[in-house]
């Protein structure tokens, strides 16, 4: 099975391992991520203004490319996923944006939201299946107590992201269980880490990540997993916080394909 894949700029740079472990794991699970040609950065935040078009075009281009290949589009970074999924919703449901974006793009076939956008977690849950994943695990992560950090962008707005129950998600916990580890549910797993505020306001951001880290360790987690390079960076600002790793690293470890991938 082949999917179109949108890596995003951070996965080509500071978060290379998030990408490398995902590709290796995908092959071990019997699917392939084929990178879209000439993709451009999605911008990192969804342009909320209903009159913004130019800032949405890189997402539309990626979506149209997947459509042209007749494939679903897979993302890894929470932020890319959020932006592309919401732009796709605009292309499906907001006639004005759809018309103006297509006027700009001049594609051979206008794009009207045909592509299905899947986060890697959704591929694992809905295409591979967590039972099948569990069967492929060769190094079960026994005894590890892991807190899932969802953050905001995968879940909200729930109506559009349709990723999981935005207030009581479980996909990452099910993932942790499939790898043989023990998920730790803690109250702040879907509260914001501060996002881009950490660039200029470290103090405010650190206060927020301290709360998340304390919440997780207070409930017994020994480590945190995330899909988002910015969440990871922010959560690491907390002094003596729990280690934060990309979920794909644990996946590759459990599947026995971690060795040989340079971190």
């Amino acid at each position: 099975m082949k999917y179109s894949y949108y890596p995003g700029c951070t996965l080509k740079n500071k978060a290379k391992v998030l990408d490398a472990y995902a590709r290796a794991s995908a092959l071990a699970l019997g699917f392939e991520l084929e990178e879209i040609r000439d993709w451009q950065c999605c911008g990192g935040v969804y342009p909320l203004g209903s009159d913004e078009i130019a800032t949405k075009l890189s997402s539309v281009r990626a979506l149209a490319d997947a459509r042209d290949h007749g494939r679903e589009l897979v993302t890894l970074c929470s932020a890319c996923h959020h932006v592309i999924k919401r732009v796709n919703d605009d292309m499906q449901n907001v006639a004005d944006i759809r018309t103006r974006a297509n006027n700009y793009m001049q594609l051979d076939t206008p794009y009207t939201g045909e592509t299905n956008v899947l986060h890697f977690f959704e591929v694992l849950r809905d295409r591979v299946g967590f039972d099948a994943l569990a069967k492929k695990v060769v190094n079960p992560l026994k005894g590890k107590k892991i807190g899932a950090y969802y953050g905001c962008l995968l879940l909200r707005p729930g109506e559009i992201m349709a990723f999981d129950d935005p207030e009581n998600p479980r996909v990452m916990e099910d993932f942790i269980r499939a790898l043989g580890a023990e998920p730790v549910v803690y109250p702040y797993r879907n509260e914001c880490c501060g996002g881009y505020i950490s660039l200029k306001e470290k103090e405010m951001a650190t206060r927020m990540t301290d709360t998340i880290q304390e919440s997780a360790s207070g409930f017994g987690a020994e480590m945190l997993i995330t899909a988002c390079p910015l969440c990871r960076y922010n959560l690491n600002m907390t002094a003596n916080g729990l280690p934060v790793v990309y979920f794909t690293e644990l996946l590759a470890e459990a599947l026995g394909v971690k060795e040989g991938i340079e971190a």
Binding site: T10, C41, G44, A79, L199, K200, P229, R232
Partner: peptide, 27 residues
Amino acid sequence: YLSPDEIPALLDPELPQQLLVSAFRRY
């Protein structure tokens, strides 16, 4: 709220591109 001149002083080796890109777009 953010000027390119400020950036060098805000950088650190771990800082993900995503943070700069998002901050520029929001600010």
